[in-house]
Write a protein that binds this DNA or RNA. Structure first.
Length: 277
DNA sequence: TGTCCATGATCAA
DNA sequence: TGATCCTGGACAT
């Protein structure tokens, strides 16, 4: 269950484990069998993430493997010989000294160049990529009536951002998640973007999402450390009905566009702003 | 053993 | 907006 940093980590892991070497490829589950066979014996040349999409390229294979983990997908690595495959493994790739298993992806397919271009064309700037242009995200936010919380989940606005990062970055900037995008100032957008770059790079290097400033960590405030469902330390994500670390208010939750949203009503007060006439 | 839910996204209506 | 897909973990029975 991944946000963008997970895919970028996977890209690095795939390159470290298999880059520059031939692989054996199979689909124990069966739904990627003919494509997997097409890859076997070829040298893995590249693995790269764009938002929540992962593309893997092989020498002399004209198409790219496109992986999207969706909600349930996982990609795990192991050293040495792979164990007997379970029947849920969509794609198994085996190299000289290790293997990887892909289970439950929303997408695992071979895409030609136009197919890949079509996917990339739908993606907005990815805070984890050096080639990202935040102006593209701002242009969409600036004219949108939708709540900023919904906009941040839109992969055409900020690619790779998911439910955790959107909730946490809005908390860190004291912004009401329901504020229409068009009421945001350019300064607020820039601050959100810069923070996403920082938070997501940290998550990329550490392997979990931590968003709490040191002075607000439970230990620093004399509270017991919290065991987090997703493995990181956060202000509001999945903390409904618990006290805000900073102000003590109960964290609120509601379903927004089909996804659970979390925020602190005191630290993220409703705006009094109106659109200029 | 069964049901619900999840760091996601698409499709039909 | 709701149903659906994918897998597995948490929880109830």
């Amino acid at each position: 269950m991944p946000e963008g940093h997970v895919l970028h980590r996977l890209a690095h892991s795939v390159m470290d484990e298999f880059g520059g070497r031939p692989v054996t490829s199979s689909s124990p589950q069966g739904r990627f069998s003919s494509e997997a066979a097409e890859i076997t014996g070829h040298v893995l040349s590249d693995a790269e993430a764009y938002g929540k999409h992962l593309f893997i390229t092989f020498h002399s294979v004209p198409r790219h493997v496109h992986v999207h983990l969706g909600m349930a997908g996982r990609m795990e690595f192991g050293a040495g010989d792979p164990p007997p495959p379970r029947d849920t493994i969509r794609w198994r790739m085996v190299g000289d000294h290790g293997y990887t298993d892909l289970r439950g992806p929303a997408a695992c397919e071979l895409l030609d160049e136009p197919g890949m271009t079509k996917i990339l064309a739908k993606l907005g700037p990815d805070p984890l990529r050096d080639d990202a242009d935040p102006d593209i995200g701002w242009a969409k936010v600036h004219r949108a009536a939708k709540p900023i919380a919904a906009l941040l989940m839109d992969q055409a606005v900020t690619a790779g951002v998911g439910n955790i990062f959107r909730a946490e970055v809005l908390y860190r900037h004291h912004i009401d998640p329901h504020m229409p995008g068009k009421l945001l100032t350019r300064e607020e957008w820039d601050a959100i973007w810069d923070d996403l770059v920082e938070l997501m790079h940290k998550a990329l290097s550490v392997g979990r999402i931590d968003t709490v400033y040191p002075e607000h960590m439970p230990e620093a405030m004399g509270r017991p450390p919290r065991v987090d469902p997703h493995g990181g330390e956060v202000y509001v994500y999945r903390r409904a009905d618990q006290q805000c670390y900073v102000c003590g208010s109960d964290v609120l939750t509601e379903v927004l566009e089909g996804r659970n949203l979390f925020w602190c009503p005191t630290c993220q007060p409703k705006t009094q702003r109106r659109l200029a006439p």
